[in-house]
Simulated scan of single mutants.
Amino acid sequence: MSAIQIRNLTLGYDRHPAVHHLDGTIEQGDMLAVVGPNGAGKSTLLKGLAGAIAPLGGTVELPRLGRHDIAYLPQAAELDRSFPITVFELVAMGLWRRTGLFGGLSRADRQAVGDALAAVGLTGFERRAIGTLSGGQMQRMLFARLLVQDARVILLDEPFTAIDARTCADLLDLVRRWNAEQRTVVAVLHDMETVRQAFPRSLLLARRAIAWGHTADVLTPENMLAARRMTEAFDDHADICTEAA
C-alpha cells in the first residue's frame, strides 16, 4: 500500500530545477533514507513532499492521506532560536491542526505535550526558553513536537546532525518505534553507517535518482561515484531540464 506516489516530479526555485523528473513510490511503513552529495536536491525533495514548495512539473500524490497526515522536521538551522517561546509552547504547536492557531489547550492536550516531552527526556524543561537549549535538547524538543502531531508520514531533514551520540541514539530509537507502528519515515541523512544500520531502503539522489531500493544495493561505490559526477554535471543557472554538457 503506497503512502506517497511521485510522478515525473521536478522541483526548484525561480524556475531553476533542483530535482529532475523523479518517479517512485514510498510505501506505507517505509523507512527510507535520502542520501547524496551536497547540492543533490535532498532538502528540496523533502520540502516538495511536505507541500512547502510547489512542483515545477509532475506531481506528489497521497492516495490515502491528506496533508494533515504529514509531519515535517526541517533542518535545525531553519528555526529561529531567539523567538521568545517556551519549550512547552513550541511542542504544543504540533497540535494546531486540532486546536487552531489560537485555540486553547484542553487537559488532554496538555497531557499529550507532557507525555511527548517525557518520551524524549525533557521532563522539567517545559518553562525553559528555547534559546537556552543545547543542540541536542533542541532536537529532542522538535521530536516531541512531531510526537504530538501523531502523523502517518514523518519527513526528517538531517535529524541527527550536530547532536551528541546519546541524543542521536535516543532519537533513532524513537524513529524505529514509529516504524514499528507502521508510520512512514523519510529522512535526509549524511551518515552512511546510520543509513546501513537503520534504514532498509534508500534513495540516492543527484538531482535525478541514481538508485532507489534496498540500501545494500543502493549504496555501492559505483552508485556513489555516479551521484557525485551527475551533481557536478548540472548547471544551477539553467532553465528546467537543461544539463551542462
Rank of each mutant, 00 (worst) to 15 (best):
A3K: 03
Q5L: 06
Q5Y: 11
I6H: 07
R7V: 05
N8W: 04
R15Y: 06
H16Q: 01
H16T: 01
A18L: 02
A18T: 01
A18M: 06
A18N: 07
V19R: 00
H20I: 04
H21I: 03
L22Y: 01
D23S: 00
E27W: 14
Q28D: 15
G29S: 09
M31A: 12
M31G: 12
V34W: 02
V34S: 05
G36N: 07
G41E: 01
G41C: 04
G41A: 01
T44W: 15
L45N: 07
L46T: 02
L46G: 03
L49Q: 14
A50I: 07
I53W: 10
G58R: 06
L62H: 13
L62K: 12
L65Y: 11
I70N: 10
A71G: 11
A76D: 11
A77F: 15
A77P: 05
D80I: 06
R81S: 06
S82P: 12
I85V: 08
V87G: 00
L90D: 09
L90I: 13
M93I: 05
L95C: 04
W96C: 10
R98S: 04
G100F: 13
G104T: 14
L105M: 09
Q111M: 12
Q111Y: 10
G114F: 03
D115Q: 13
D115F: 05
D115P: 09
A118N: 11
G121L: 09
L122P: 00
G124K: 13
E126I: 02
I130M: 10
T132Q: 15
Q137Y: 09
Q137I: 04
M138F: 15
M141S: 04
L142S: 04
F143K: 02
F143G: 00
V148Q: 08
L156A: 03
D157V: 04
P159F: 13
P159C: 08
T161G: 08
I163C: 09
R166D: 11
C168G: 10
A169K: 02
A169Y: 15
D173Q: 12
L174K: 09
V175L: 02
R177I: 08
R177F: 05
V185R: 12
V185M: 06
A187K: 10
V195R: 07
R196I: 06
F199D: 07
F199P: 02
F199G: 04
L204E: 13
R207D: 11
R208G: 00
A209Y: 15
I210G: 01
G213H: 13
H214G: 13
T215D: 12
A216M: 13
A216C: 12
N223W: 06
M224C: 09
A227K: 07
R228M: 09
R228W: 06
R228A: 05
R229L: 15
M230Q: 14
A233E: 02
D236H: 10
A238D: 03
A238V: 03
D239F: 02
I240G: 00
T242C: 07
